[in-house]
Design a protein around this nucleic acid. Structure first.
Lengths: 326, 326
DNA sequence: TTGTACGCGTTATCAT
DNA sequence: ATGATAACGCGTACAA
């Protein structure tokens, strides 16, 4: 059986409402009493019953995060960060890997204060209507009615191209995933083509190396292919961090030095974790900023139940060792 | 504001206790009334308030899963599967990526009926004591007091060796991750050495190709290295599915055919998802069995609050196209 | 400064 | 077959 405030009250010789006040740090309780009560609570391993609390407060201080099937690894860092931030505002994060509509139902039953949905899925607006709780979507194209947060990936690649051109580079290649019908990856390619001013098929084939996925190995194979065929490339833009790691391994095998032999810009949100022997120049929205933006947005939605407007985060460039003047 | 049974009662012109019964399919309510009430509930988008329910029932029909380091695919598939199975028993799964002790506190406040902890961490027993809710650990060495579920990885590799020897193979290599101080990976290596009866350093170096991680690329590089140096290997055992994918790619480059040029056994739990042009012979405990074992265990713990005994799952071999007689 | 009483939404028990 | 009512643990307005 769980320990309740009544148990504490009995042991402390006070009424249970006094205990309640003491634990909530109310000024209506004398300090010595407060300390004594808190001690007993600690000692008994008291955990307030969330069910009872949310029942009376009509608030659970909890946000639900829906994280359905696919795309698991990438957003995990984001969710970890998000979790930390919400905790700082004394909110608890609960995750569900159920199907979206089912997860929404669950979170509604648990009276979470807000729901964050990761990734794309059908009929967003329908889902939003089915919930009494405000819902925020991340990583989808801006939707009409549902509040959404997304990143301008197209502009990120544009930033990379501009930077390289300023450094004098003209022969710039792009390595990125085009294996699936993925809007997110597609946006990066479009950003590249537009800012390079390319539209001829022959030129596209020369400068764009499509990969079959987003793993390290895909970047490795693409880079090898590039190095074998094209000798006059002076800069490479990579569509993801893992691809970049693969590109660096291939470069190493060819005994190419970055940035001496070619400059490298990586699309990326996550802080560089692995030791790559080089600090990368990256473009993208740092994951910490995404997380804090989501947090801000969610807290606003919780406070004023009005629909927040959707926001598109503008990426930044982080110039580092892997690029230099030609 | 959420819709409650009272709202439904008012609209249906009955008392709210009747509504409660009707929704719970009690035989104490006439069928026509029941149908009418259910219709109204549906129409109003009613979701039972989990807080209120668990308050009175002292049961939340929820299990909390703690997943501190959001890892790779394998565990996420397991959790997905687990989620499905628990759902079939009308339990809801909630995930937390918090630190273990904090997550336990959260889940206690939410009155979950049981907690499953994934992965290794310090002071298991301490944690178990801090919880009023039964805790089950997965993926750690069996612990004294805390109930644990784990897989016998060592024996899995032994199965692979035995199978290959029966097919007439003698020169068998092992490709596996040894980059970190990881007990789980270490167990596989020990299984290999023991069942091969190897202990000389020179032989170990010849037959064991250590990798620097568990990614596809690591398997690819290791296999290439193997193929270049050793010509008389007739079979390869791989420590993980991703490594196997890399090995197959390397084989493809060398124009080696599996199983014509060498047999391949992969350690693996997950159902083969990707199209590898070949059905693999695998050893390991299928993830579905792990999931159902965990489910069984958890449900037992919930029902009889007694500590279940720890269990070690015995792997099986799944013979397929990738191995054949020498 | 502390204690009493009520209500949150639900289920379960008892009375009608 | 249906309705009234107590109880779950907590927070809070109000009484002492």
């Amino acid at each position: 059986m769980s320990v309740t405030i009544k148990d504490i009250a009995k042991k402390a010789g006070v009424s249970y409402s006094t205990v309640s006040k003491a634990l909530r740090n109310s000024p209506l309780v004398k300090n010595p009493t407060k300390i004594k009560i808190k001690e007993i609570a600690e000692q008994l391993g008291y955990q307030p019953n969330a069910a009872a609390r949310s029942l009376v407060q009509k608030k659970s201080y909890t946000v639900g995060v829906i994280w359905p099937t696919v795309e698991r690894v990438a957003p995990s860092i984001l969710i970890t960060k998000l979790n930390e931030l919400l905790e700082e505002h004394s909110y608890t994060t609960l995750l569900s890997i159920n199907k979206v509509n089912q997860a929404i139902a669950t979170f509604n039953r648990f009276q979470v204060d807000a729901i964050i949905v990761f990734g794309e899925h059908d009929n967003v607006q329908e889902l939003s209507l089915a919930s009494t709780v405000p819902i925020l979507h991340y990583g989808v194209q801006t939707w009409k009615d549902a509040p959404t947060i997304d990143v301008n990936r197209q502009y990120a690649i544009k930033l990379a191209v501009t930077h390289l051109k300023e450094l004098g580079h003209e022969h710039i290649a792009f390595i990125g995933d085009q294996s699936k019908e993925n809007t997110l990856q597609r946006a990066k390619l479009i950003g590249f083509l537009e800012s390079m001013g390319i539209n001829e098929k022959s030129e596209i084939e020369k400068l764009v190396i499509p990969t079959n996925g987003l793993e390290l190995h895909d970047g490795y194979m693409a880079a090898k292919q590039l190095f074998e065929r094209q000798r006059n490339i002076s800069a490479v833009i990579s569509g993801s961090y893992d691809l970049t790691r693969g590109i660096l391994r291939a470069a190493n095998e060819f005994e190419y030095d970055v940035p001496k032999d070619f400059s490298l810009v990586s699309y990326d949100n996550i802080p560089q974790s692995e030791d790559l022997h080089i600090e990368l120049t990256t473009v993208g929205v740092p994951i910490s900023r995404i997380a804090s933006e989501i947090t801000k947005c969610v807290l606003t939605m919780i406070e004023s139940k009005e629909p927040t407007h959707s926001v598109v985060l503008e990426p930044e460039i982080n110039i580092n060792e892997s690029t230099r003047k030609i």
